[in-house]
Write a protein that binds this DNA or RNA. Structure first.
Length: 872
DNA sequence: CCCTGGTCCCAACTT
DNA sequence: GGGACCAGGG
């Protein structure tokens, strides 16, 4: 095969060793993804393996979708059947949707339903989990001041990742706090079961339990998947490891790929021993090392290797590259976080411009330790009118209006989902208040049912005032009608709906109000807010997979795209429209008549669009919900974006011509929470290694001398990250910063190495500023106080004073004050959001804020002075 | 019962 | 900078 010629001997061996266990130790940039994808192609084309009997597991959706794409390029069009390439969690959901009921056990009470989850289970995200823990703690009377729900949840998750059940946590507990956690854990589990819900960790745990307990199910998957690949093996945790072993069956055609130097998820239970002891698990294993790095220059590789060499717990390896030399690493020491971000924007702007001039297509990334650092970089990029893409951060599915609608869908899908029910029972307000809910909760507890069950019971027992009963009945009908639509048995009840809500007297599809939520068929495909990867991953088993849509007793038979005949099951989009309409959700927002409200309406339309897309893919409601739970818009990693902002964790597996590694300060990176454990520091160092090795040509390290912790606090002086000290000085070039002698603690900057630069530093004017470096723990006002470099003018001034050729964009320096004065109705263009219409204006002169409606981004409030708006 | 505004924490990484 | 929670008035 011709594609094999593109591989080096080790890669080729890794591809061609198809049978038996193989461990591929793949150093950074050594062509790991290439090996996996070629191996899949080789199995299909050369060995004649059926595509659908290949299973590849990754950690992130990003990695999965990239792999799908690359495999498609190699073997696309050969067959309709595709290999299953999926994250661990997505894979588990599919298995559970098919077979979880095999875990059900008959009730001890004759005639009572069996115990255990059904196929209609819902997935609880972190928020849901937190609500659940909170309510359990409230009920147990545990003060959540000392034991916060957060910490309890973290503890429970830790236990789950190590496969400890509540009893084991209790037995191992040595302090009252852990005992309380065990107690909460028990109740938490019960509540999940009652709600027919699984949390993220359960997805893995229950799948493992299922494959262990149900031999038939296990055999089914063992027959189905003959070749298994596991990516990022160094980051597998205990449940993932067991899952892998169960799936490998007795055939052992397992191929694990990993790099112990890139293990960065131990906090999620990843056990580095999995990779270190692969040979013990599979004595017949073949080990293949990929040590040629194709990505980075020698300088970058050498620097990264020097840093990670400080770790004691590693096997050690020799990565080499044929890309001799290269530019030295840059180091820039910014006075503060704002300046650090502006420097990055400036540098990247120049870098990209030069590349364009030379006809090169390059990509740059800004990497940071914590998500909250992104804000400053975003602002800087906007000021420089640079197009950028942020990975992570806020999610579409985290917006309250979206969560509300998703919760409605979840309740319709599974009425026992009490957390979701609680969210929507009075949203929009329908007169069901605290007292009513408390009564329901009490009844639910007494009768051992979910809140939905309590709803009927409380009405029957006449425990509530007439008003509340009426409100509850209205809510109940809404949900029942939604369920009837789903089942295809929905019959219009005019007399009910008319009394309840004047909107409900028409089926969703024909309602005149539909203009709010529906788009013309010709148009709606184009108005898609990109909040998910194209779901080839989930779609693949549709055609061939074991988890066919609507199989068995699934409550959600597949719906035809387009309209439906009477009596046929409604699809997700139709139910959504029905809900929006019947609850009057949009109508209420319209009455609010605020920019924010219209923005929410816009988001709801996007949700309907998403549901229509889902329908067109032939997905059922549960698949739509699974997607919403597992695939966040953070995964919409846009490869075409020239500039990407993200955390170091999110950058794993990616590469960029230029990488900015920012915030290299003790306490931030390495993070302060890792100081206590030497092992944690080693993990931070690996994270640093991962970040550095993302760079192909240019790597710039930066640090801010002063950094603000929260928005308004006084900035604190920082100590340079220890990782900076570990980079060999010979490989580094100072980019106008004041990098002092190696040992920060004894530095008084008494003898500046580069006086001409130092002298220009504003904070050098005052003696005390240098003292801050020696005693950084004490929060202190910046020594350059009185002069803030946050304001635009000062930034320009600052750079001017330093004599640096650091061109702050013109618009920053010469403010076109009052020149614009955009008025409502006017069309404008924004560098990031594109064309929009001015909606509202408030304030005077340069402080004026204008609200602009952008077709794809909804309403944005912008300060006219800063927003780079143009007439369109 | 509902809405508002003030206050108190907080923020590590991800499925 | 911002979400979660609570007190107090309508």
């Amino acid at each position: 095969m011709s594609f094999l010629d593109q591989l080096n001997p080790q890669q080729r061996e890794a591809v061609e060793t198809t049978d038996g266990p193989v461990l591929i130790l793949a150093g950074a940039g050594s062509g790991k993804t290439r090996v996996i994808t070629y191996r899949i192609a080789y199995l299909i084309e050369n060995v004649g393996v059926m595509p659908e009997s290949i299973l590849a597991m990754t950690f992130t959706n990003k990695a999965a979708s990239e792999m799908v794409e690359r495999v498609d390029k190699l073997v696309g069009g050969l067959s309709i059947a595709k290999p299953v390439i999926s994250t661990f969690h997505s894979f588990c959901v599919r298995v559970l949707r098919r077979d979880i009921e095999a875990l059900r056990i008959p009730s001890s009470v004759p005639g009572a339903p069996a115990i255990g989850h059904t196929k209609s289970f819902v997935i609880y995200d972190e928020n849901d989990q937190q609500q659940l823990v909170k309510s359990v703690m409230r009920r147990l009377g545990i003060d959540d001041k000392q034991t916060t729900p957060r910490s309890v949840l973290a503890h429970i998750s830790w236990a789950k990742n190590h496969m400890l059940d509540p009893q084991e946590v209790y037995l191992q507990s040595a302090d009252p706090k852990t005992e309380r956690v065990a107690q909460i854990y028990v109740e938490y589990k019960k509540e999940l079961a009652k709600a027919n819900a699984l949390d993220f960790d359960d997805l893995l745990l229950e799948t493992v339990r299922l494959l262990k307990a149900a031999a038939g199910v296990r055999e089914y998957y063992n027959r189905r998947f003959q070749y298994i690949l596991v990516d990022e093996y160094q980051d597998t945790n205990r449940p993932q490891y067991e899952l892998m072993r169960l799936l490998a069956g007795t055939r052992h055609n397992i191929c694990a790929v990993g790099d112990e130097d890139q293990s960065i998820y131990s906090w999620r239970g990843a056990d580095i021993r999995n990779i270190l002891e692969f040979e013990k698990d599979f004595p017949e294993a073949k080990i293949i090392r990929l040590e040629q790095n194709y990505r980075s220059t020698q300088n970058i590789l050498q620097a990264a290797s020097a840093v990670v060499a400080n770790n004691l717990k590693r096997k050690g390896k020799n990565l080499w590259t044929s890309r001799q030399g290269g530019t030295r690493l840059g180091y820039y020491e910014a006075p503060d976080g704002e300046n650090e971000a502006l420097f990055a924007a400036d540098y990247i702007a120049k870098y990209l411009r030069e590349a364009v001039d030379q006809g090169e297509n390059v990509r740059a990334a800004v990497l940071y330790r914590t998500n909250s650092q992104s804000r400053l970089f975003e602002e800087a990029m906007r000021r420089y009118q640079l197009k950028y893409h942020v990975v992570g951060g806020f999610s579409f599915y985290e917006r309250s209006e979206i969560k509300d609608m998703i919760s409605y869908l979840k309740v319709i899908h599974n009425v026992d989902d009490s957390i979701s029910l609680l969210r929507v029972i009075n949203t929009p307000v329908r007169g069901i208040g605290k007292t009513t809910i408390e009564t329901l909760e009490r009844v639910a507890l007494e009768t051992g049912t979910s809140l939905w069950g309590a709803l009927g019971e409380a009405t029957k027992r006449q425990l509530l005032p007439q008003r509340a009963v009426a409100a509850l009945r209205s809510f109940r009908r809404l949900i029942e009608d939604g369920r009837a639509m789903l089942a295809g048995t929905y019959v219009e009840r005019l007399e009910d709906t008319a009394r309840e809500d004047q909107h409900a007297d028409l089926p969703a599809d024909e309602s005149p109000e539909d203009a709010d939520v529906t788009f013309d068929p010709g148009e709606d495909e184009n108005i898609s807010f990109d909040f998910g990867v194209p779901d080839q991953v989930d779609a693949s088993p549709e055609t061939t997979g074991p988890v066919a849509a609507g199989e068995g007793a699934s409550s959600t038979p597949a719906a035809e795209p387009g309209f439906r005949a009477p009596g046929e099951a409604a699809n997700t989009a139709e139910i959504l429209k029905f809900l929006i309409d019947r609850t009057g959700y949009i109508k209420q927002l319209e009455e609010e008549d605020t920019p924010e409200a219209y923005s929410r309406i816009e988001n709801l339309r996007e949700l309907v669009n998403a549901a229509m897309d889902s329908r067109d893919r032939g997905e059922t409601l549960d698949q739509f919900l699974d997607h919403a739970a597992l695939v966040s818009d953070a995964d919409a990693y846009d490869e075409r974006a020239q500039i990407t902002l993200m955390t170091l964790h999110a950058a794993k597996g990616l590469e960029f011509s230029l990488v900015f590694l920012c915030g290299l300060e003790e306490g931030l990176f390495p993070h302060s929470r890792t100081f206590l454990q030497p092992d944690d520091i080693e993990e931070e160092r690996r994270l640093c290694y991962v970040g550095m090795t993302r760079a192909m040509d240019t790597l710039v390290l930066t640090r801010a001398v002063y950094r603000r912790r929260y928005g308004t606090d006084l900035p604190e002086a920082s100590v340079p990250s220890r990782f900076l000290e570990e980079v060999p000085a010979a490989l580094v070039e100072e980019l106008g910063g004041s990098r002092r002698k190696r040992d920060a603690s004894r530095t008084r900057v008494s003898a500046p190495q580069e006086p001409e630069h130092q002298a220009h530093y504003a904070y050098e004017d005052e003696d005390q500023s240098t003292a801050n470096w020696a005693a950084p723990s004490k929060p202190q006002a910046p020594a350059y106080s009185g002069r803030s470099y946050n304001s635009i003018d000062n930034i320009a001034e600052f750079f001017a004073s330093r004599g640096k050729k650091f061109n702050v964009p013109k618009t920053l320096v010469e403010e076109p004050r009052g020149k614009k004065g955009f008025k409502p109705g006017q069309k404008v263009r924004h560098p990031k959001y594109g064309e929009g219409t001015v909606y509202h204006r408030e304030g005077e002169g340069e402080e004026a804020k204008i609200t602009v409606q952008f077709p794809r981004f909804g309403l944005k409030k912008l300060v006219e002075k800063y927003a780079q708006l143009e007439r369109a």
